Computed example of a mutant assay.
Amino acid sequence: MSLFNGTDSCHSFFEKVLLALVTSLKVMKKILLLTDFSKNATNAILYALQFFSGNPCTFYLMYVHKVESYISDDLLENSKDSVYEAIAEKPKAKLKSLKATLIKDYAHEHYEFKTVIDYDVFTDAIKQAVRKFSLDYIVMGSNGASNVKEVLMGSNTINVIEKVSCKTLVVPSGYRFKLPHEFLVVLNPTTLLDQYLMDIIIAFITRFKLKLHVLRLVKNIVDTTVVVNDLDNLAYLGARYQRVEADDVDKAVAKYLETHPIDITTYVAQDKSFVERLFSASPNKEIKSRMNLPLLVLHSQ
Rank of each mutant, 00 (worst) to 15 (best):
Y60I: 05
K167W: 04
D250S: 14
E109A: 11
V130F: 06
E15V: 03
Y63S: 00
I158R: 10
D81Y: 09
G238Y: 06
L95C: 05
D120Q: 09
I161V: 15
F177T: 07
T123R: 02
A125R: 02
S9R: 03
K94G: 01
V27M: 10
K99G: 01
H260N: 14
Q301A: 13
A235I: 11
L184Q: 04
A254K: 06
I202K: 00
F37S: 01
N159R: 14
Y175W: 10
P294M: 02
I200Y: 10
L187W: 03
I45C: 02
E112C: 08
N159V: 04
V64P: 00
L296S: 06
T157C: 14
D120P: 02
I264Q: 07
G174S: 11
V67K: 12
D136V: 08
L237S: 09
T23S: 13
E162I: 14
K99M: 13
H65E: 10
V218C: 07
Q128M: 09
K94A: 12
A44H: 01
L210H: 10
K96L: 13
L298N: 04
K272Y: 09
F183Q: 01
V17M: 07
Y236N: 05
V170R: 02
Y111W: 05
A254N: 12
D223T: 05
R176L: 13
V214Q: 00
T123M: 03
F4H: 00
F4P: 00
L75Y: 06
F133D: 02
L98N: 03
Q242R: 14
P180N: 08
D120Y: 01
F52H: 10
N159S: 15
I161C: 01
M140H: 05
V214H: 02
D36G: 03
N43D: 07
E85F: 09
F183D: 00
A254T: 08
E150A: 14
Q50S: 14
A86F: 10
L19E: 11
H181T: 15
T265G: 04
D230S: 07
S12T: 09
Y256F: 15
V214W: 01
D124R: 07
G141P: 03
K127I: 05
D248F: 09
G6V: 05
V151Y: 09
Y196V: 13
L296C: 08
E182I: 03
S142A: 13
K96H: 12
V130W: 04
S53A: 15
Y175R: 09
I205L: 06
